Simulated scan of single mutants.
Amino acid sequence: MLDIRYELTQNKKEKPDESALGFGKYYTDHMFIVDHTEGQGWHDARIVPYQPLALDPAAMVLHYAMESFEGMKAYRLPDGSVQLFRPDRNAERMQNTNHRMCLPSLSTEDFIQAVKALVKTDEDWVPHQEGTSLYIRPFVIATEPHLGVRPSATHQFIIICSPVGAYYSTGINPVKIFVEDEYTRACPGGTGFTKCGGNYAASLISQVKAHDLGYEQTLWLDGVEHKYVEEVGSMNCFFKIDGTVYTAPCVGTVLPGVTRMSCIELLKKWGIPVSEERLPVADVMKASKEGKLEEVFGTGTAAVISPVGELRYEGDVAYINDGKIGEITHKLYDTLTGIQWGKIPDDMGWTVKVD
Rank of each mutant, 00 (worst) to 15 (best):
L103I: 05
Q113S: 01
S105A: 10
D110C: 08
Q129E: 15
Y135A: 00
V115C: 04
Y135D: 00
E130V: 13
Q156P: 03
L147A: 09
S133L: 14
T154C: 00
W125D: 13
T108E: 10
L147D: 12
P127L: 07
I112D: 10
M101D: 10
L147N: 12
H155E: 08
F157K: 08
V149G: 02
V119F: 09
K120R: 15
I141T: 10
G148P: 09
T108V: 14
L106P: 04
S133Y: 13
P145N: 06
H128K: 13
S133C: 14
L134T: 00
T108G: 09
V140F: 06
G131K: 06
S107F: 01
I136P: 08
S152V: 04
P138M: 00
F157Y: 11
S152R: 08
E109V: 10
M101L: 15
E123L: 05
E130H: 14
D122S: 00
P145Q: 02
A114D: 07
G131H: 05
Q129V: 13
K116P: 11
V115L: 01
D122C: 01
Q129I: 11
Q129R: 15
H128C: 11
A117H: 14
F139N: 01
R150I: 14
Q113I: 05
R100P: 05
H146C: 15
T143E: 03
V126S: 09
H128P: 02
I141L: 05
Q156K: 04
Q113E: 12
E144Q: 08
I112H: 04
A142R: 12
L147R: 10
A153P: 11
V149R: 08
F139K: 03
T108S: 08
S133V: 13
A117W: 13
I112T: 07
H146D: 15
S133T: 12
I141A: 07
L106R: 07
G148K: 01
H155Y: 03
T143S: 05
D110N: 10
I136E: 09
P138C: 03
P145V: 05
K116T: 11
F111G: 03
H146L: 15
D110T: 02
F139H: 00
Y135P: 06
H146F: 15
M101K: 13
D124I: 06
K120W: 12
A142H: 11
R100W: 02
D110I: 04
E144W: 07
T108R: 05
I141H: 06
V140C: 11
F139G: 10
A142V: 10
L134R: 03
V115E: 02
T132C: 15
I141E: 08
L118H: 07
M101N: 10
W125I: 12
T154E: 04
D122V: 10
F139Y: 07
E144M: 09
S105H: 04
Q156F: 02
P145E: 04
L103F: 05
F111C: 01
D122N: 03
R100V: 06
R150K: 15
D122T: 03
P151K: 10
S133E: 12
P138R: 04
A142Y: 11
A114K: 06
R137M: 03
E144K: 01
T154P: 07
M101F: 06
F157L: 04
Q129L: 15
R100Q: 05
F139C: 00
R150C: 14
T154V: 00
R150A: 15
A114N: 03
L134W: 04
G131W: 02
T132W: 12
P104V: 09
M101V: 06
E144F: 06
T154A: 02
V119G: 07
P127G: 08
